[in-house]
Amino acid sequence: MFSLRQLIGRQKPLADCRSGRLVAVIHCILDQNVRDHGAASFPAANWAFLDLCREHRVGMLQMPCPEVQCLGMSRARPAGQSLRDALASLAGRAACQRLAGETAALMAAHVAHGHRLLAVIGGNMQSPGCAVHAEASGLGESSGVFMLELVDELLRRDLAVPFMPLRDADPQLLAEDMRRIAALFSEGIGGN
């Protein structure tokens, strides 16, 4: 009769197949159900983006939806107040800062374990929380409230990560963004 310790010692270690590469993606890329009513571009998830990640062996860290986290699924707010104004309010900004801190901590943990964080993938140009408007100096002020808080938090942690949009509300912009992301994924595939 073998003891449990002897049986465990006889097993061959499992091969670790992870690529060590990942992107942080906005919640709705993987779950369109969290989008505001009328804003979903796909029935469930952006399958083309998921296929691109699978093809290039890139993992996905799903970031929280700031609108749902701050305002709930119904995006409750005072009559006449826009989603952006709700997220930019003192309470909304504090919630986005908290979410950005938690998200950046998880990203930093990945990097500390030797994983390559390739990019933060944001959303459509009109997204109040997750829009990515890139400028030569970084994210433009018209970017989403959560994205602006996240870039600040990553800078505080000395994590240099490119922010890229995935503008799936427009098929032409989506194709352009997918080409850019595919090019990023193809760079330095051999290393971690």
Results as ranks from 00 to 15, higher is better:
D36F: 12
H37N: 15
S41M: 09
F42W: 14
P43A: 04
A45M: 03
F49E: 07
L50N: 03
C53Y: 06
R54T: 10
R54L: 15
H56V: 06
R57A: 08
V58F: 08
L61I: 05
Q62A: 02
M63H: 08
E67D: 10
C70D: 10
M73H: 13
M73T: 14
M73Y: 14
S74W: 14
R75K: 08
R75Y: 08
A76N: 03
A76P: 07
A76K: 14
R77G: 12
Q81F: 13
L83D: 09
R84F: 08
R84G: 14
D85G: 12
L87K: 04
A88T: 05
S89G: 12
S89F: 06
L90S: 08
G92V: 03
R93H: 03
R93G: 09
R93S: 05
R93E: 04
A94G: 11
L99S: 08
G101W: 01
G101A: 07
E102V: 00
A104F: 01
A105E: 15
A105H: 04
L106G: 10
M107D: 00
M107P: 01
A108N: 01
A108T: 01
A109L: 02
V111K: 01
A112T: 00
A112E: 12
H115Q: 02
H115N: 11
R116P: 07
L118M: 04
A119M: 06
I121W: 00
I121K: 01
G122A: 04
M125H: 03
Q126F: 06
S127E: 01
S127K: 05
